[in-house]
């Protein structure tokens, strides 16, 4: 499916040239344009300023703009590369590129490590893992006793913390993920491959913007 460059269309603040973004990512120019349609939709869902804010991100993920979630917060913070509280278009495309089926596994492993390194210490600590397990249980409305959570975390650490220093470093993480590839399942979005075929309406809309 072809697409027409949208040079004449009005763009939101933080807009970047699709040819530049395509050159830096696994997306084609057409796919970047299709992503721009998705971005516009998300960034106009509440504040209509062309920037994705936390509430808009939560609305898209949970159909509820007030739904706080530790993991959505972490994803939002990693997408917000400039750390200014909003996701701009270029940040959106570059970050989603990590989830592209053609992106090397090493990049996905590194992204997942950053995601779980809650306090940016360069390690995944036992307390962080426990906090994440409790957050997941809370989100799912499940209750497990502290003892059970402790067993789950302990068992995971016994497998992942091969150096036995009580924390998981990037090398240990890489090794652990290679033994448990299912852990990276949510780091790949099949939708991102040939976006314009999966979302033909986005491509059509980008042409109508002309």
């Amino acid at each position: 499916m072809g697409c027409i460059p949208t040079k004449l269309a009005k763009h939101t603040p933080g807009y970047e040239d699709p040819t530049v973004l395509a050159s830096e990512t696994s997306f084609s120019v057409c796919e970047v344009e299709a992503l721009y349609e998705l971005f516009k939709k998300l960034s106009h869902s509440i504040f209509k300023d062309g920037l994705i804010r936390k509430e808009e991100f939560q609305l898209a993920l949970f159909k509820n703009s007030k739904r706080k979630n530790l993991f959505a917060d972490r994803i939002f913070d990693l997408f917000d590369i400039k750390r200014n509280g909003v996701i701009e278009f270029g940040e959106f495309v570059r970050s989603l590129n990590v989830f592209h089926p053609d992106t090397p596994t090493e990049e996905k492993i590194a992204f997942a490590f950053k995601l779980y390194d809650l306090r940016h210490t360069g390690y995944i600590e036992r307390e962080e893992l426990k906090e994440m397990v409790f957050a997941l249980l809370d989100e799912s409305g499940l209750h497990l006793s502290d003892d059970v959570v402790e067993v789950i975390v302990e068992k995971t650490f016994s497998q992942a913390d091969s150096k036995g220093d009580g924390r998981i470093d990037p090398d240990e993480w890489k090794e652990f993920v290679s033994q448990n590839p299912a852990l990276l399942k949510n780091m790949t979005l099949p939708y991102l491959k040939d976006m314009t075929m999966v979302f033909p309406s986005f491509a059509v809309n980008s042409e109508l913007d002309e």
Binding site: L61, F62, F71, I75, M132, V148, N180
Partner: peptide, 25 residues
């Protein structure tokens, strides 16, 4: 058998990590 689960496997099920939802919005 939740105790048999890998903690990372458990947390990877979070809806907050399921970005496919961005496309359904």
């Amino acid at each position: 058998q939740p105790a048999a689960m890998n903690a990372f496997e458990l947390i990877s099920m979070s809806k907050g990590l399921n970005l496919a939802n961005l496309f359904d919005s």
